[in-house]
Design a protein around this nucleic acid. Structure first.
Lengths: 241, 241
DNA sequence: ATGCCAAGTTGATCAAGGTCAACAACCTAG
DNA sequence: CTAGGTTGTTGACCTTGATCAACTTGGCAT
């Protein structure tokens, strides 16, 4: 199902450039990058870019669509660890052992740009800006994960849901989409898994926030009615748990 | 309190080398590394190497002692995100924004080797092995964090405690210490924070595992009486939560 | 259409773990 | 030695969110 069609891909032409690449590359450097990222791949909804245990060869920039990553433990359990939208880079978990430690699955028909990692390392020796950028992208993932731990370890259900929605909102906004009006690409169950909650709890929390007038939910369509108040609920709410 | 004493530090002589550095560096490369890591710093118990908001300049390899990192949210909440023991590297959260996002605090009198990050980037251009190693270390942190999320999101209290103890055990073993007999360096509260539990729950779980004969706990001294069974409990236990 | 399945909502009940409180053991300072 | 603070243990009780179950809705295949 996964097409390995090579689409023309030129970072130098891409409107996601500012999200993927360091700013201020020269013409020459940009064309080096173009030659590095020479393959684009279509991933159908439900298909994986890579799975846990797959040999690591590349990292992937989301060009179009939406992904989740999920880890599975020995027993049947699995947990969504992240969602990725266009301009975000995934697959860096594979570097350490040359093997991926999670599955990366498309939530809708999507496209990724394939960045062969060892070539990236080679190029980043020639372009220090590129090296630094790579390090920042990796570090950003570490910081994000720390925030995630904070959320899972220290927030109650309602706060987690709010934090999740505000995070999505902010990422949509950064891409020029409406910050307060968007469609979820994932199911309640996937949200629950990501937030360490059961799908029923996610559903109930949505309903509850809607009753409060803070949110409008219609299936996957979300409208934030009072983002300011939601933010406040996050930072003030019970010191509890 | 924090002494900025410069101790002699020579990676080429260090017995933690195999944990910190890539294998197979040449003499010449090793002496380059020696000149990079020229400062060692003593950190007294309770003191911080860096705090959230501090400008990022370096990463730190634990030479001796024990650290925790903790993030704090706007409101008073804080959460321990990691513990570090000798040979482990901390501070990489600072790369992305040139600012640290957590506090790194010594749990006992400790020593760290200071690795100026921009110089490390410079050197890793000259030593590809070094660059690759850096990427692996960062990636390892990402993988570790994913496991942490899994734990916080999908495991029940008892499993978290077991996973925590087994993880410590394995890291002690990797350093040549007894795998089944060690002292905790952190309080029950710190363990609880790390595991997303209250200190009472940690305490009760210890007691419970002790009743089961799986563990011996005497204050901070832990003895794993049946590591095999503990491992089994982790992978089999309730699909629940 | 019709039947089916996945996704979502809502209610009733239950249990894991949080909260509050009392107390013990230990450490340090005076 | 004594006082006071920190750390840990244990008990009683309560809250949050999980579990189980019924039902609705919409999409898709026949």
């Amino acid at each position: 199902m996964t097409e390995i069609t090579k689409l023309q891909s030129a970072c130098s032409q891409c409107n996601l450039q500012e999200l993927c690449l360091p700013i201020g590359l020269s013409e020459a450097e940009l064309s080096l990058v173009d030659s590095l990222v020479d393959e684009r791949r279509k991933i159908a909804r439900g298909e994986a870019i890579f799975r846990s245990g797959d040999r690591f060869t590349a990292i992937y920039a989301v060009k179009l669509g939406f992904f989740k990553t999920e880890v599975l433990s020995e027993d049947g359990r699995h947990q969504v660890t992240s969602f990725y939208m266009p301009g975000e880079v995934l697959g860096m978990d594979g570097i350490s052992a040359e093997t991926h430690h999670c599955d990366a699955i498309a939530l809708e028909d999507s496209e990724v740009c394939l960045i062969p990692f060892h070539e990236l390392e080679t190029i980043s020796v020639k372009i220090p800006t590129m090296q630094r950028h790579l390090h920042r992208v990796m570090s950003r993932e570490i910081v994000r994960d720390q925030g995630m731990m904070m959320m899972l370890g220290a927030m109650r259900a309602e706060e987690r849901v709010i934090a999740f929605l505000l995070n999505l909102s902010q990422r949509y906004a950064a891409r020029g989409y409406a910050a307060a009006d968007f469609n979820l690409r994932m199911t309640r169950e996937e949200i629950g898994s990501y937030l360490g909650l059961k799908l029923e709890t996610v559903s109930r929390t949505f309903s509850h926030l809607q009753e409060e007038g803070l949110l409008q939910v219609e299936k996957k369509h979300i409208r934030l009615m009072d983002a300011a108040k939601l933010k406040k609920m996050l930072s003030q709410e019970g010191i509890g748990r």
